[in-house]
Computed example of a mutant assay.
Amino acid sequence: MSGFDILERFSLSGRRALVTGAGRGLGRSIAQGLAAAGAEVTLCARTESEIEEGAAEIRARGLKALTLVADVSDVEDFRQKIDELQPFDVFVNNAGMNRPKPLSEVTLDDFDAVIGLNLRAAIFAAQAVSCRMTSANLRGSIINMSSQMGHVGAANRTIYCASKWALEGFTKALAVELGPAGIRVNTVGPTFIQTPMTKPFLDDPVVRDAIVSKIKLGRLGTPEDVVGAVLYLSTDAAALVTGTAVLVDGGWTAD
């Protein structure tokens, strides 16, 4: 295989991709990246105006984008909507949340919200999409959005860490289960990423310095850093990669 041939393996031309949590921030950036690689990308979120805006941005560049208004936490509704669509070749299971606080202050509502979206919804979203993949005999790629906190611990993030550690285990088990069908399942684990949502938190110089001190490359992450990892796992360039985690953490977990 020549160097020119290998570049073709990074193309998503002719493939369909679904990104949940795509209304803003990291999810929208991932959708833009998949579209730029040639995929027809479907942006999924609860807020129609956000995903329509994101899809319009993609289409304005001459690329392909559709929208799906859905709440992944509503498992049966999401499954029904997925069953009504053509199967996807790539699924980025990105919807997630956090409510940072000490365990002593965590409420049942906090637990149910974080575990409900980050784990329960993610598992059943993967179930819905993968069932459509297998029924269509697609050799697809499922990418569960995890975190560096799925590999380490941190104060005020006990429930979040619990959800992401569990997602890592789920990913490995599903990779074993779906391997014979040719479906790859991996996670991407970002460090702290600069987005409009994290800006107020990261603008605090004390907080920012404390975080950057743990990142061996000495800087916060950008959406583009994460998009690159997602694109790799989505394409044939990663054809032999499954059941693993791609950490985009600047070396945070290297200790």
Rank of each mutant, 00 (worst) to 15 (best):
A126G: 15
A122L: 15
N98H: 09
M97F: 06
S104M: 05
A122D: 10
I123W: 15
M133G: 14
A122P: 14
I115R: 02
A122V: 12
S135L: 13
I115S: 05
T134Q: 07
I115D: 02
V106Q: 06
M97R: 13
Q127G: 02
P100G: 00
L117F: 04
R120F: 07
S130A: 11
N118G: 02
M133N: 14
L117Y: 13
S130E: 06
A125W: 06
S130K: 10
S104N: 06
E105A: 01
S104P: 02
K101V: 01
I115L: 08
M97E: 11
I115C: 06
L108C: 07
S130Q: 12
T134W: 04
S130R: 09
F91M: 10
T107P: 00
G116A: 11
I115V: 14
M97W: 09
M97C: 14
L108G: 05
N118H: 03
R132Q: 14
G116D: 12
N93T: 11
R132L: 08
L108A: 08
S104Y: 04
I123D: 07
M133Y: 13
M133S: 09
M133L: 12
D109Q: 09
N94G: 09
V129L: 12
N94R: 00
N98K: 03
V90Q: 13
K101D: 04
T134A: 09
P100W: 00
Q127D: 13
V114Q: 05
A113T: 09
F111Q: 00
T107I: 02
V106Y: 04
G96I: 01
P100D: 09
D89P: 12
V129N: 06
F111N: 03
L108K: 01
R132E: 15
L138P: 04
L103T: 11
A125M: 03
A128N: 06
L119S: 08
D89K: 10
D110A: 06
C131A: 13
R99Q: 02
I123N: 10
N137I: 01
V90W: 12
I123H: 14
A136L: 07
N94D: 04
N118T: 04
D110H: 10
I123T: 13
L117V: 15
A125V: 08
N94L: 07
V92L: 12
N137T: 10
D109L: 01
A113H: 12
P102G: 08
D110G: 12
L117E: 03
L108Y: 05
F91I: 06
L138V: 14
N94I: 03
M97G: 11
A121N: 04
F124E: 04
A122W: 11
L119K: 02
S135D: 13
S104L: 13
A113S: 10
V90E: 07
S135I: 06
V90R: 06
A126N: 15
A136D: 08
P100L: 03
A113L: 05
P102T: 05
F124H: 04
S130G: 10
L117S: 07
K101I: 00
T134P: 00
A125R: 02
E105L: 03
D109T: 10
A122R: 08
S104Q: 03
G96A: 03
T107F: 01
F91P: 09
R120A: 12
R99E: 00
K101H: 07
G96K: 02
T107L: 05
L117A: 09
F111L: 11
I115T: 11
L119T: 00
M133E: 14
T134G: 02
S104G: 01
A136C: 11
I123G: 11
N118I: 05
L138I: 15
